[in-house]
Nucleic acid binder design. Structure first.
Lengths: 139, 139
DNA sequence: GTGGACCCTGTAGTAACTACAGGTTCAAGG
DNA sequence: CCTTGAACCTGTAGTTACTACAGGGTCCAC
């Protein structure tokens, strides 16, 4: 109950939405431009007004992005969630494919790390003009 | 003679350089534009001519990129190597910093993988309209 | 001398934001 | 009611490291 404004505020401006979700203002507007967030209603003066549904959707987007889904993936996940007609299987398929991507990335990075570590270990870091790291990179 | 130039020739056209180094033609021209590769001499007709030094430099760039160095890093490494005045310590410092970056990336990806795996395991992938993955993403 | 492989420049597109510039609106204090 | 300053607006351009054309020109083997 400490966040009365957070749980009961009916409508908020973009700055508040930004702070609550941890998504920057520019990014929110960007999401709107590319169709990931809907066009919100506006005040008479033209400023955006957000409600609970916007909060939920933006949180979904942020969580998905944090887990490494691309915006195209997020779009797909959202339309599955929106549709009501989605099958759990499709969602799982995307997730499993994404896990595969991530594992490939990890494998790539570990390969890099291994080579770099080896290179660095050959180099004592002295003031000499003959560097085993540069030599390795040249070969 | 053309085939000989392909394997041991003194000067080559961009296509040959590309094939020997595994760097695409467009990328080579891009490297030139941003100053990572020098402006090569040209034929009368204006086509680029490359020699051994270009080959070496481009190989260096490719190896560095494969190890995940940014182009800015590559630029720095090249200028250290070019200078002759470099110290081994500077090179090692960059390498160690880069290893740190890579480890952070691996840690991030592993965190993602763990959460995704957990999400996926809660989902039997059936045809039901109630997906634990989407639920997790919303929270 | 010609055909086709190769090369040229310049521009625009990609992902996912981020950073302004230059202007408008809102709400609170006086 | 009026002012002020924070917050908001649109639109554009920059970031990384390429990649993909379009619409031409060059090279050289036959």
């Amino acid at each position: 109950m400490q966040d009365i404004t957070a749980s009961t505020g009916r409508t908020v401006a973009i700055g508040v939405l930004s702070k609550r979700t941890g998504v920057k203002i520019e990014t929110i507007r960007y999401y709107e431009r590319i169709g990931i967030m809907p066009n919100p209603p506006r005040t008479e003066g033209g400023q955006r007004i957000y409600g609970e549904t916007h909060m939920k959707r933006l949180t979904f987007v942020r969580r998905s992005r944090e887990l490494g889904f691309s915006l195209d993936d997020v779009r797909a996940l959202l339309s599955l969630a929106d549709g009501g007609e989605f099958t759990c299987g499709e969602v799982k398929e995307m997730t499993v494919a994404h896990i595969g991507d991530i594992r490939r990335k990890i494998a790539d990075l570990r390969r890099m790390e291994r080579v770099l570590k080896e290179m660095a270990s050959k180099c004592d870091g002295g003031d000499v003009p003959d560097c085993p790291i540069l030599e390795t990179l040249s070969s």
